[in-house]
Design a protein around this nucleic acid. Structure first.
Lengths: 252, 252
DNA sequence: CGACACCTTGATATCTTTCAAGGATAGTGG
DNA sequence: CCACTATCCTTGAAAGATATCAAGGTGTCG
């Protein structure tokens, strides 16, 4: 907010994917079940918006003017208590849906954690299309149910995991959503959040996050280059540290 | 599970509301937007099930045979780590929907916290009706979005609130959903959970829950009669203790 | 009345936060 | 290009909150 770009809500759009057919998130976004004519209805009301890292997208309590899909970047949703204690309650990656249909005001702050590109729809027209388009509604229901499942996993993390398990779990989540693997069993990824954002995600302080990362590093579970670049030589060991039973493989 | 009634999945149904029109949750349940013919489709595939307090309804990882609405009682959803640490991730009151459409297996344990009556549908036929019935799908989407909002409030509670605030918040939630008021500003209600269940809800131990209740009692924020009957002489004071800014009034 | 499950309270241990300081990194302007 | 400054990150020591361990109390149901 105190960024020099804070008043710029529309940035350079020269690289925007103008046609839905070319869109990188076409297969997974809220519109993924839409057929040609349904898609063109959405196409007519869509517009792209981009945000610099740290820029506010929607403030808690503000009227919700638009909803949309994350095309590029990462968006964080946070809630704050009166005395300033802050908890992240959502972390949106490309193809995730931002904004709540059928509600006038946002319940959370939405802030760009990295540089972000959104494909947005004015809320009212979108709700109109939603009501008339079962394929859209069905996909939105599916995505909302998935988000609810993720939120419940998160409840377990916040309520019962140790600081070490929390940090390891977070790294696993990021690895799953954005990780690359050069050798079998290995995983490389960039943490898209600052230590402060990680702390807000995990219900910890930045000092504890930092200490746990140092500790995982000392034990050889992870290697780092700078604060954000991570390599897990044995991803299974990281999963182990997360306290989850090694569920959905995802090990390359 | 070790209860003497654990094998009884069907109890006495003599008081079951056979006709949807007479149903106590008709106005708020997943079927609330359904019209006559839609309702009779559901009517044809519905059946009632009742459970004793403590009885398992669905186990995590088990195939999900049915879904349905809570008609009476309270159902808890829990997740458990390999070493036994347990976190509640859902608490369903009458009219809430149990079970996830479009998924083969349950992600959680569902257990009756009190005596429970469910209005259930075989999952497959229900999904069929769901696909063909926009009013049903729309209501389910709405309810899922509400649950997601509640889960996010819960994340804030688990991640950032103190033990005292957690206990007070829980009491507020129960008061909102089940409370009665005899005098203005006051609130009376029954806690539908044991101390152990409250601990699982709040990410605490039973000892800490007990101590915080004692402390709220000593300060006059609440009065109790037995372990489960609570009166908050000044509900605003309880809200204050919960750490939330006094939002949606609900003060009688 | 007795047994069992549930709840409360106390003392101590442990984990995470808080307070404090220093180090790394990136952007800025000379 | 280099020094400067602000921000972010790491580490240490002490304090604080909640968990753990232990014992006793309360209520309920047979």
């Amino acid at each position: 907010m105190s960024k020099s770009l804070s008043l710029v809500t529309e940035m350079d759009h020269s690289d925007v994917p103008l046609r839905c057919a070319d869109c990188a998130i076409r297969e997974r976004a809220v519109c993924s079940y839409c057929t040609g004519s349904e898609l063109s209805q959405l196409d007519r009301i869509k517009s792209y918006r981009s945000y610099a890292a740290g820029q506010e997208i929607i403030g808690a309590g503000e009227p919700l003017e638009f909803v949309g899909s994350v095309v590029e970047g990462v968006v964080k949703l946070t809630k704050t208590l009166i005395d300033g204690r802050r908890q992240m309650v959502g972390l949106l990656f490309p193809s995730d849906f931002l904004g709540r249909a059928m509600r006038e005001k946002s319940e959370y702050d939405a802030v760009a954690a990295t540089e972000v590109l959104l494909c947005t729809f004015q809320r009212r027209p979108f709700e109109g299309v939603l009501t008339r388009t079962p394929s859209l509604e069905q996909r939105l229901l599916e995505m909302t149910l998935d988000e609810l499942d993720a939120a419940r996993e998160w409840l377990l993390l916040l309520g019962r995991k140790t600081a070490r398990e929390k940090v390891a779990s977070f790294l696993c989540i990021v690895a799953r959503r954005t990780g690359q693997s050069a050798e079998p069993g290995e995983m490389r990824f960039q943490i898209p959040l600052s230590r402060e954002d990680m702390a807000d995600y995990l219900g910890l302080t930045i000092e504890t996050v930092s200490r746990q990362i140092s500790s995982l590093k000392k034990e050889g579970v992870i290697e780092t280059e700078g604060a954000r670049s991570v390599r897990a030589p044995d991803f299974a060991a990281l999963l182990e540290a997360s306290g989850d039973d090694a569920e959905g493989g995802m090990i390359p």
